[in-house]
Amino acid sequence: MKKYRLALIAALAALAVSASGCSFVTVVPIGQEGEYTGQKKFDSSEESSSDWDQVVDEITQQASDVVEVLNAGGAVSEAASVTGTAKIAAYDGAKSKKYLVLELDGYTGDAAVMIQIGGPNSTTAIRDVQTLKNFENFTNQTEWSQYAKALNKESASNVAEPLALDESCAGKTVTFTGAAVKSGTSTDIIITPVSLNVE
């Protein structure tokens, strides 16, 4: 009896909604939602890949000599565009993050300076030095953060991965341009490259 009562209530509710002229549901094929809402779903990788070439150009043009920047105390609290040539002191690939540890002539500081060539990159240096887009171009903090990660992925896939670097590169000379910043709580300086050449 109870079941019938519940079914009757549900049927009456459905009838009331139908009678009000409302349709229960509007079905839209995936990908065509924007035609109805006027909104485009945020795609960080689409955003970063379309911006990448311009970002590379901008960082290349504004980059300063890495030794001068670091000796002047730069790339610590704020990211900086840097360029330079250095000897690869070591290839650090023991963990998920892969680095080239640099030996910089003329650098007077104590911090280790490394180029990240693989693994998860949590820095936001490339996003922070570029001026093509700022926070106002995004809807929220999450999109802004996703944009930084997507630019780091562009760096990995376009710059580091094609070189397929391994332990054998230790002792060679690297010429690089990229965005440098102090890594989180450590004193290390991490450079995310936009161009890299190992000889």
Binding site: V17, C22, S23, F24, V25, T26, V27, V28, P29, I30
Partner: peptide
């Protein structure tokens, strides 16, 4: 995704 559609429901629903 398996239906290929997005469903938008009316406010009463």
């Amino acid at each position: 995704r398996f239906t290929g559609n997005t469903y938008y429901f009316s406010v009463p629903v």
